[in-house]
Every structure is written in C-alpha cells, then in structure tokens.
Write a protein that binds this DNA or RNA. Structure first.
Ligand code: FES
Ligand code: FES
Lengths: 143, 143
DNA sequence: AATATTTTATGATAAAAATCATATTTAAGA
DNA sequence: TCTTAAATATGATTTTTATCATAAAATATT
C-alpha cells in the first residue's frame, strides 16, 4: 500500500505537528526514538520533506525541524506524493498503461471506487486534522 | 498496492480462465506473449500457483497449465495471498504492530473502511467472475 | 524403448528499496 | 571570531524484489 519510507515520513510529520512549532524545533536525534525509525534513515527523509516544503527546518544550534501553520494545513497526500510519487495510489492495479473507465482492467470496476475514496480522503484530511485526532485520543501513534 | 508479481499472476490466471480447460492446456510459452510478461518470470509464478492449488498443470507433451472448475471458483484474493502474503493488504498502513479498532493509528479511522471493502470484494469475486466480465466486454486485458 | 515436449526445481543475476555513514555547510552563542 | 550544534549533500552498503537461466523429472507419441 504505502512504502516503508512514506510510512516513516507520515509518522515523522505527525510527530512534528504535535511536538513542534516555530519556537520549539525538534532535532533529528529527538525524533528518531519516539517514532521508532533509524536516525540516519529519518534524517534523509526529513531532508526530502523540507526540500518539498512539507516541513520546515533551520540549521545550527537551536535548529531542527518543525511545522509552521502553512505546513500543518497541507493535505496528507502531499507527503505520499513526495515520497512515493503520485502514481503509487492511482496507477492501474494490473499495470495497464492507462487506467480509465472506458477501458477498465478486470479489477478496475470492482475496486476503483474504494481506491478513489482513499485518495479523496487523503486529499481532504490535513496534517493538522490527523494530529488533532491523536491529541483527542481518537488515534494513537507508535511505538 | 499489489506487487509486480501478483499483478502478473492475476493476469496469467485470468488468461487461463478464459483460454484453457482440462482438454485445452496452455503452455508457458503461449501465455507469456499475450499477457506481456517475460517467459522465465511467469513460468516461476505459475509454478508457485500450482503448488498452492490456484491453478492446475500437467507435464510432458500436450501438457501445460489450465484451470479446472474448482480453480475457477476460487476467490481472487487467493492469488494475492499466495504471491504477496496475507498481510500486504491488511497490515497497518503505518506499520503499527496490531491494526485494530481499539488502538487505531491516525490513518486507520479514515481509511480502514475503504481498505476493508477492497479485501471484502476480493474475497467475494471469484476468478470466474472476473473472467466473465472480460468475456462480456465489461473489462479488458492487456496489452 | 527412445525421443521430444513440457513442467519443476533450483539457483544466478540485476534492479530497486531500505538502511547506514560521513564530510560539508549553516547559524547560535561564548 | 571561535566553537559547537544542528541540517544538508552525497554516497556506500545491505536487503528485498524482480528478472533470467538451466538441468532434472515426467509424460505423450512414435
Ligand atoms: S484499469 Fe486497472 S485499475 Fe483502472
Ligand atoms: S492501526 Fe494503522 S491501519 Fe489500522
């Protein structure tokens, strides 16, 4: 469904959404343990996310990663699109070149509605939305 | 979503559902081209499928792969479970050890219903069902 | 029985994804 | 301005997945 990398990325971003802001930045060392992802690995992912404007960062002492308001209000799908690419969730499940209603593969007619719903929801829900669910105790994060 | 291997496997099984039976077996050489999968690769997959009783085969001259009635009436999910393993479609989308309603990850509450629907439909639909859709012209196969 | 045709078993190679490692750059604070 | 703490850039290594190759076993046909 999702690659390992994008799972890690989502966990990291949600962690930042809950535990950081412009004044309180989080270092790669401090995020690695609570989200249970190897430090060197999450470091690389965070760098990609910064470059894609999903999260923010500053270097040097007192630096670290954080989410500003613009970051928080992005849809969750942005994370997946950066890490996994847009096609992962939308390309044909049998790898036909063009996935469309006019020439559907045998899985399309039965599964496409559910898949579309998934991507729709990922567009609809913002990072902040998910973070709020965690804060309300309606959802939980690792370990 | 699905591995390359299980996409290939589904295409192959559907091809057999449409083009084979006990009297008319299909050789690995004859299936490779129409489903557009390298011969050595699909050969290996077909062997796994035979071992798992998803499809049937006989060796020697006039031998080949085919689907009997029992094979055809199996749910499509059987193919995926053999090739990709059962967890691929059901394990937590953020890799939490246990994916369940009582302690859902932040993606669970929003996406789990759609995912459950997908696996439910894959249980519900038989290989024959999908083959019929192709034969009726409601779905299409590669190239 | 011999031959030819097919699957089966087994493993080798290549490509991609996941993971690890480190030198460089930036910025804060003494 | 020097030192230190952080991200950034870059690339190496490992593991997994995908792909390719082939000798052995089985069966139909002659
Ligand atoms: S054509 Fe295959 S999923 Fe749409
Ligand atoms: S707990 Fe993550 S998908 Fe169910």
């Amino acid at each position: 469904m999702l690659s390992n990398s994008s799972k890690y990325a989502i966990k990291a971003v949600l962690y930042l959404a809950i535990n950081s802001n412009e004044e309180k930045k989080v270092t790669v060392k401090d995020i690695s343990t609570p989200i249970n992802v190897p430090q060197a690995y999450i470091a690389k992912l965070l760098q990609e996310l910064v470059k894609a404007d999903i999260i923010s960062s500053t270097r040097g002492p007192k630096g670290g990663f954080y989410l500003n308001e613009v970051n928080k209000n992005q849809p969750v799908i942005n994370i997946l699109n950066v890490i996994d690419g847009e096609k992962r969730l939308t390309s044909c499940m049998l790898s036909l070149e063009k996935c469309k209603e006019e020439k559907p593969c045998p899985l399309h007619n039965i599964l496409s509605p559910s898949r579309k719903k998934i991507t729709h929801l990922l567009h609809l829900k913002s990072i902040k939305d998910l973070a709020t669910e965690v804060q309300l105790g309606n959802a939980f994060l690792p370990l």
